[in-house]
Design a protein around this nucleic acid. Structure first.
Lengths: 154, 154
DNA sequence: ACGCACGTTAACGCGAACGTGAGAATGCCG
DNA sequence: CGGCATTCTCACGTTCGCGTTAACGTGCGT
């Protein structure tokens, strides 16, 4: 998967592609939200396509949904558990422990889902209120223009 | 236990009612998100029912939807324009200017609505992904328990 | 009038999430 | 090889959204 060195981006290009600053990319790495990317011999970071995807998910979770980086880390970690366990499935030593970790991850995910459902419900309410308010603006503007027209006729 | 006129709450009660700290109430006032509430002779703040409502809206916008206080201030200001214009409707000097302000407020509100629609769409996508992930957790757990049972029989 | 809960402003502190250089190393082109 | 852009690692600075004393004033039951 992705052997082409041109599929890797240096931090400048990665920054431009994601719309996040270089500082932010390093910061996310430092905070453990992004696993340390590959490096060139000289030490320059090389971001894979997966890295870019993950960064864009982080960006949406943060900018669009307003989650804290700590929350996001928890989410992504929970997300990783399944994949990680799956990749290590062959050596099923202490499978009970793995199952337990997976149940925990499931619980976290479920809580996230419920949280999002709550948010969406509240958002729908807000949306309706905004639509109603626009209708009132329009009603007022329409009424004003009618009154204005009537006044011109008197 | 201050027994005050029924409709007004002192900052302690207002804090308890809204779930926001007293510091936060003063901070929101300082930042212009809440118009300065009434005061007693001694200087104690008196929050009206409207104040409480507004505070609860701010709380939802912030905690639930993750907007910045600056964003929220802009929203609420846009919201106020209609009411303010309505209350000053009698002196309709330069009504054209008022209509213009109202159109601007309408535009801002419309943008907010569109923003919320975008957020809800992304949220719905995320929700589905989470649901799918839970299904995968369950599938893995179910499979694991079956294999475990089979192993016990061998 | 006293006590005590409750409120006031002012000011400093704090964690999160980066911004902003400084100074040195690296990549690459001619 | 020189020269220039890019990146590296510290490390201090900044903004937001409050928390936390400190020092002092107010409301009110007794």
């Amino acid at each position: 998967m992705g052997r082409d060195p041109r599929e890797f981006l240096q931090i400048g290009d990665a920054s431009e592609r994601t719309g996040l600053t270089q500082r932010t990319l390093r910061y996310y790495e430092e905070k453990g939200l992004l696993r340390s990317p590959a490096r060139m011999e000289g030490g320059f970071r090389l971001y894979s396509g997966d890295d870019i995807d993950r960064l864009e998910r982080i960006k949406e979770l943060r900018e669009l949904l307003g989650f804290s980086l700590a929350d996001i880390k928890e989410m992504l970690d929970a997300e990783d558990v399944r994949l990680q366990i799956k990749s290590e499935w062959r050596k099923d030593a202490d499978a009970a422990e793995k199952a337990q970790k997976m149940r925990v991850a499931r619980e976290i995910t479920l809580q996230q889902l419920q949280l999002i459902d709550q948010k969406m419900a509240k958002m729908a309410t807000m949306r309706d209120q905004l639509a109603e308010r626009i209708a009132k603006y329009d009603a007022n503007l329409r009424q004003w223009s009618e009154e204005s027209a009537a006044r011109q006729h008197s």
